[in-house]
Every structure is written in C-alpha cells, then in structure tokens.
Design a protein around this nucleic acid. Sequence first.
DNA 1: GTCTATAAATAGATAGAC
DNA 2: GTCTATCTATTTATAGAC
Lengths: 204, 204
Amino acid sequence: MAAADASRDRVFAAAATAFAAHGFAGTSVDRIAHAARLNKAMIYYHFRNKAELYREILRDMFGAVGARAGAVAASNRPPADKVREFIDTFATEAEARPHFPPIWFREVAEGGPHLDDATLGDMTGVLKSLASIIEEGVRAGAFCPISPLLVHAGIVGPVLLFFASAGIRRRVERSGVRGAATLTRGEVVAHVQRVTLGLLEGRT
Amino acid sequence: MAAADASRDRVFAAAATAFAAHGFAGTSVDRIAHAARLNKAMIYYHFRNKAELYREILRDMFGAVGARAGAVAASNRPPADKVREFIDTFATEAEARPHFPPIWFREVAEGGPHLDDATLGDMTGVLKSLASIIEEGVRAGAFCPISPLLVHAGIVGPVLLFFASAGIRRRVERSGVRGAATLTRGEVVAHVQRVTLGLLEGRT
DNA sequence: GTCTATAAATAGATAGAC
DNA sequence: GTCTATCTATTTATAGAC
C-alpha cells in the first residue's frame, strides 16, 4: 500500500487491462512490463509467474463481485428491491473494473482452467446469492418460482455483453446501426431490472 | 468436398474446436495439426497461415447465423412467430457449431480484431434482422417500440452464455448447485422466448 | 527495488524430399 | 498430398550486477 507497492500496483493494473484485451496466452510478460513502465524482471520480483499474476486478478475480481452480491442478499429489504440492487451492483462492479466483463467471458469460454476452487466459489456465490433472494421472494408470495440459473443468465448475459462489447459496438455503429455505441449503462440496467422483475412477479 | 478435401476438413474442424477452447493465441499450429492427425506443414498447404484459417472459421460461423437470421426476418409469418423462430434458430446454430458461442465471446472480448468488414457485416446482419422484425411488429400494433440492441442483448447474451458455459456449469454443479449442469437447451429457449415476447408485447 | 543479459523452450512459417 | 528437417522470432523465466 505504501510507496513500496506502487510498482506492484502498476503491474497488476497493466496486466488486468492486457489480459482483458488479449487473453492470457495473447499477453506477453514483456507487454505487461512495458505498459507498467517497468522491466520484465520486475514482474517476477512481484509475482511468482504469469499464471499466478493472472489468478490474483481473477481472485480480486470474483472476490469483489461475490462479496457484494452476498451483501445484497443479506441486506434487510424487500425481495424486489434486492433484485434491483443485485443488478445495479453487478453493473457497478463491471464498470469499476473494465477488465472484468471480457475476462469473465474468456474464463467461461475456456471452462475456467485458471479458476482455483476458492475463486470458483466466489463465482458460484453470485449465483447462490441470487437464488436465495428468489427463494425469499417466493416464500413471501411476491415471486413465482423460477430457476435461478435462468434468471442469472438473463442478468449476467446481457450486462456482461453490454460492457464487453463497447469496442465492437463502435464498429457496428460506424457500419450503419444507429445508437449501437451510445447505449448507456443506465438504459441497460433499467431494462434488465424491468425484464427480470416482470418475470419474477409473473407479469409475463 | 471429395476425398481430396478430407484432410482440409479435418484441419478446419480441429482448428474450430481448439480455437474455441484456447483462443487464437492459445492455440498452436502444431496442436491443430496433431488433433487433425496431420503434420504441421499440411496446415500451410491448405491455408495461407494461422490467421487466415481462423478468419475462415469466423466467416463460416457468422455467415451461417447471419443468413439464417435474415431468412427468418424475410419469412411470411406473424412478428411474434418470427421472434420465437429467431431465438430457436439462433440456439440451433449455436448447438450445431459448438465452437460458435465461445468464439463469439472471445471476439467480443477482444473487440473483433480478426473480423473483416464482410464478417462484421454478417454479425451486424443478425442485429438488423431482429430490428426489422421488431419494427414490423410495431407497425402492426403487436409490439411496443423497444431498442433492438436491448432485445438483442437479452437473447444473445443468455443463449450464448448457456452454451458456452457447459464446462463451468459442470464444475459449479459439483460444488453444490443442483441443476447447474442439467439445464437443457429447450428450457433456455422457451424461457428466452417467453421473456422476449412478454417484453415486446408489453406485458411487463 | 530495479536493471541487463541470457538461458531454454516454444512458436509460426518454409524448403525440399517423396 | 504428405512428410521431415530446419530457420527465425518470440516467449517464459532466471542469474546476477547495481
């Protein structure tokens, strides 16, 4: 945290950005070092190797999202508010860590070979938190019983796709689709909240 | 197509599987050759280089989906049926080409650096076809006007996530989430159809 | 903590025999 | 069409000076 760790933080940030843009295999240690304005040897001074650096980024990412989702589920509010908050929180975390949506997509595509059990537990915790919110709503008579996996996919899929696709959407806009690049975070969150609650409250 | 092309097809299939599992950078030409039961030099006999092989897989994938989405939009049926068919067709293509959801995710995560303009056009065509279906429904008084980008994300996000996450869902199931691995294609398609039509027909 | 230099392995791509 | 052998560049990782 002190000045002693400044270079370690630069490595961490540069690596997160590079891994998001080019993937684990597509990112060389040299590239990370250069982006962090450091020499390659410094990477190995701070981290055991490239894989360990990558895993630390995954832990930070899934740990934060898992914890915040758990806090929402444990809070003291009506189920419908918790669902709204779950979606908004998820979007907030995705926005605060721009590397998070691309890396989540890549890990899913790959089957998660870099995910250790604890980190997979954080990922699973997001799903379990959502499941507990739904269960609570069903017990309270506010929600219909719907598979948490489907609800989860209906939230996580669109939100991650929105944040991860900013680059492609700019190209799509240029090729003639009006509004592709100007879609905002607020519109997406409001839309997903509306669709999810409509579903859970049986208005569909 | 004849026996002369058998080895080319094996390269194509092996490459699609490997690129889906490990990404472009994470897949070596040697690995593809081995999976195709051929020598590395044969890859270069059939394809100019690794990037050109990858691009051909992208073209095949997005070309097929783009064409089928266009056919659904152009068909002669009520808008609500077209929406159902659009979703089912998208899932069918994703299932027929198991490499397609992971590769789509990776391309989105990367910003599509491997996508040439024609292929990006096919990807955009999927969105445009959906937009034309929605517009038709609005004109007919059957649909509310909703941003095609949001509807698109609500379909493509969950469906791709479902197919791409089979590996992770098996691990999640083992770590205690019942039903994570046994969710079926039919359940997902029916769910997305229901949510999407509920939204478009204003029952939400 | 930070660097240069380098080892050792692996990658993409080609030449040329059969 | 298919192979072996090889060239060249790049990559991860380490040794050791400052």
